[in-house]
C-alpha cells in the first residue's frame, strides 16, 4: 500500500517539476520571438538579461514558498497532536505518537497522523509500534484495539418495552378539585356544581351539592364542563375510595324469560338511588358544604351554586371570562 502511495507521490513531484519548468521555457522563448520581430533597435543584451532573470526568479521563489508551506516535521507533529487533543496532552501519548509519526514519515505515506486505510481514518494513537517477531530488524504497527474474533451474522433484535395501558386519563388543567363548574349538557345543564376529582376512566366526578342545587354526585365528561375561576378548598377531606367508575355503573335488569308473560308488558323501572348512594351523598355533601362555610363569602357562594347559568342579551360565550 505504502509503495503505491509513494509511487503516486513521486508522480506528483514529477508533475510539479514540469509545471515549474514550463514558465522558464516560456521566458526563454518569448524574448527570442520579440528579438526576431524587432530586429532594428533591440539590443542583444536585453533578451539575454530577461533570460537570466526569469529562471532565477522562478528558482528563488520556489524554495521560499516551499519553506513557508512546509514547516518542519516536528512542528507538523505538534500541530496534528493539538488538533486531536485540545486539552493537555499526556507525555505518553506524545512519545507514542512521535514514534508512529516518524515511521510514517520514513515510509513517505500521506501526511503523518492521517493515514488513510480504506475509508477509515486512523488516529495516531490507535496503533503502537512493535518489533517484528522473529526478526532482529524492523518494526510493525499493531492496533491498540484488537479486532473482534467473532462477528455476528445477524444483528440482535432490540427488545422493545411493553406497551403500558394508560391507567388515568388527564383532565384539563383548569379542572382541579374544588373548582366550581358550569354543566353544559344532560339533566343538570346550566347548574353550577363543584368538581370533586377526575376518575381514571376519563370522566369527572361532580356534586351539586345535592342539598344546594339538587345535583347529586355524578360523572360528567370534561367537555361538558366549564371551569369557573371560583375554587373551594376541599383538599382537607377525602372522597370515599369506593366512589369510582364501577360505583356509577348502570345495573342491568335481568332479562325476562320467554315463557314468562309478555315482553312488552313489562314497564321500565324508574331509577331510585340506593341507600348506599344516599349515604355517600350525605357524607360528601356535608364535607363540601362545611368547606364552603369556612369561606367569608359563604352566603354568596351558596347563592351562586344555587342559581343557574344562562346566556343573556349581549353575552357572547367566546368573550366571557368564567
Amino acid at each position: 500500500m505504502f509503495g503505491s502511495l509513494r509511487s503516486f507521490q513521486g508522480e506528483e513531484d514529477i508533475m510539479e517539476q514540469a509545471t515549474i519548468k514550463e514558465p522558464a521555457k516560456a521566458a526563454t522563448e518569448e524574448p527570442a520571438k520579440a528579438a526576431t520581430m524587432e530586429p532594428a533597435k533591440a539590443d542583444t543584451k536585453e533578451p539575454a538579461k530577461a533570460d537570466a532573470k526569469a529562471p532565477a526568479k522562478a528558482a528563488a521563489k520556489k524554495p521560499a514558498k516551499a519553506g513557508a508551506r512546509k514547516p518542519s516535521k516536528a512542528q507538523k507533529r505538534k500541530h496534528i497532536l493539538k488538533r486531536y487533543f485540545k486539552k493537555k496532552i499526556p507525555s505518553k501519548v506524545v512519545k507514542k505518537f512521535n514514534k508512529v509519526a516518524k515511521i510514517m514519515e520514513e515510509k513517505k505515506s500521506v501526511k503523518a497522523g492521517r493515514i488513510r486505510y480504506g475509508s477509515k481514518k486512523l488516529k495516531p494513537n490507535a496503533y503502537y509500534v512493535k518489533p517484528i517477531a522473529g526478526k532482529t530488524e524492523g518494526t510493525q504497527l499493531v492496533p491498540v484495539k484488537k479486532s473482534p474474533a467473532y462477528y455476528a451474522a445477524q444483528l440482535k433484535e432490540k427488545k422493545r418495552p411493553k406497551r403500558v395501558k394508560i391507567s388515568k386519563r388527564p383532565v384539563r388543567s383548569s379542572l382541579t378539585p374544588g373548582t366550581v363548574c358550569i354543566v353544559l349538557a344532560g339533566l343538570h345543564k346550566g347548574k353550577r356544581v363543584v368538581f370533586l376529582k377526575g376518575l381514571p376512566g376519563g370522566l369527572c366526578l361532580i356534586t351539586g351539592p345535592h342539598k344546594v342545587n339538587s345535583c347529586p354526585m355524578r360523572r360528567v365528561n370534561q367537555i361538558y364542563l366549564i371551569a369557573t375561576s371560583l375554587k373551594i378548598d376541599i383538599s382537607w377531606f377525602g372522597i370515599p375510595k369506593h366512589v369510582n367508575d364501577r360505583y356509577f355503573r348502570r345495573v342491568k335488569a335481568p332479562r325476562p324469560r320467554k315463557k314468562e308473560g309478555d315482553i312488552f308488558e313489562k314497564k321500565k323501572e324508574a331509577y331510585f338511588p340506593s341507600d348506599q348512594r344516599k349515604k355517600d351523598q350525605a357524607v360528601v355533601d356535608g364535607n363540601v358544604i362545611s368547606a364552603i362555610r369556612r369561606r367569608p363569602d359563604k352566603k354568596m357562594v351558596f347563592g351562586y351554586l344555587g342559581t343557574m347559568f344562562a346566556l343573556r342579551k349581549g353575552m357572547y360565550p367566546h368573550r366571557l371570562k368564567f
Binding site: V180, I182, T228, S229, L230, D297, M300, G303, Y304, T307, F309, R319, L320, K321, F322
Partner: peptide
C-alpha cells in the same frame, strides 16, 4: 366589565 368573572358578575347582580 370585560374582566369580570362569572362569580363576580353574580355578586354584582346580587
Amino acid at each position: 366589565r370585560d374582566q369580570m368573572t362569572d362569580y363576580c358578575k353574580y355578586k354584582v347582580g346580587r
